[in-house]
Nucleic acid binder design. Structure first.
Length: 323
DNA sequence: TGCCCATGGTAAT
DNA sequence: TTACCCTGGGCAG
């Protein structure tokens, strides 16, 4: 599922191509018909992400709140951005497509035609360019909870955990429940808030990092990788951690998140050259320090990586380096 | 083809 | 703790 970085990228897609335009809002699947009707025809005025939650504001002071959960995804088609600013400049995303999709500069040159571009992009835990559309707008595929349509771009939402129309006070209440997100607030105060919260709690740090009210946007992959990068034992209670350690965790999260938002990839092994990273990307099990590497040798000390279930989720760590 | 699993989160037990 | 939501990819058969 998308961790925080993907949701920020999706919000950016809306900011680029929907904000300022009137949207036809519908629920092809039917389950969100009443909600869609409240937004239909209104102009989108803002798109924002906080942690894994996304909020789209409309000119009638209502918001669409979406949380993708485990399976959710947005499928964009038409005028969208899948280039150097949204994705990696060297076309890694394009490489995942085996069907000759147009990417990058070629795509931009098509924009001058005036008609919506034919590009189709799936944004979920990974981003994947699909086969170009033949006509615009394309038929909805599968159970589409919400379709947002402008003159040039369509966005289809499938399989979300949360999809609701909220008033702005309700949006505020949702956001108030969330911990700080370094992409939203990079201030010292945000860091201080995280540090203070963590250092007050007897809860193991591995659970605190997954608690969206402590820090927003971290999921199971980033959690495991952050703890390894800090060489931190996952079971240490938050209140037993030195202040400097907790500050370093926040700063590393801010760094990894920024890289993720920029590249669309969960790059947790920075320090590798771009070429070496591409090589490592060839196999999913080679992408991370510890995530999903049960039994495989630690990249630093060769000790087998262990997996344990805690809080209903799988935690991966090196028992020697994170002793 | 069908089963299992997954980068979440909530509600019921 | 467990069930459930609800989708898609990987892989065993």
């Amino acid at each position: 599922m998308p961790e925080g970085h993907s949701v920020h990228r999706i919000a950016r897609q809306f900011a680029l191509h929907f904000v300022g335009k009137a949207a036809e809002v519908s629920s092809p699947q039917g389950r969100f018909a009443a909600g869609a009707a409240r937004l239909d025809g209104h102009r989108m005025t803002r798109a924002m992400a906080v942690g894994k939650q996304m909020f789209l504001e409309f000119d009638n002071d209502l918001w669409l709140h979406v949380h993708l959960g485990l399976y959710g995804a947005w499928d964009f088609a038409g005028d969208i951005t899948a280039d150097a600013t949204m994705a990696s400049a060297n076309g890694r995303i394009g490489q995942t497509n085996q069907r000759g999709t147009v990417v990058g500069e070629h795509e931009d040159s098509l924009a001058s035609i005036g008609a919506p571009r034919r590009t189709r992009l799936r944004m979920a835990e990974q981003e994947k360019l699909e086969a170009p559309i033949d006509n615009f707008p394309p038929e909805p595929i599968g159970a589409v909870r919400v379709r947002l349509l402008t003159d040039a771009t369509v966005a289809d939402l499938r399989g979300p955990t949360a999809c609701a129309v909220l008033r702005s006070d309700e949006v505020q209440a949702q956001i108030a429940k969330l911990g700080p997100d370094p992409q939203v607030d990079s201030s010292q105060a945000a860091e201080d808030r995280f540090v203070a919260t963590v250092r007050k709690k007897p809860t193991p740090i591995c659970l605190l990092l997954m608690d969206q009210s402590v820090v927003a946007g971290i999921g199971n992959v980033y959690r495991a990788e952050l703890l390894f990068r800090a060489r931190l034992n996952p079971h240490i209670p938050g209140k037993d951690l030195p202040e400097a350690t907790v500050r370093a965790l926040w700063q590393d999260w801010a760094k990894l998140l920024a890289i993720g938002v920029q590249t669309g990839q969960m790059m947790t092994m920075d320090g590798l050259s771009a070429d070496a990273y591409d090589g490592a990307m060839a196999s999913r099990s080679d992408r991370h320090w510890v995530y999903h590497r049960t039994g495989e040798p630690c990249r630093v000390c060769s000790t087998p990586i262990v997996m344990e279930e805690i809080g209903g989720r799988k935690l991966y760590w090196c028992p020697k380096d994170q002793a």
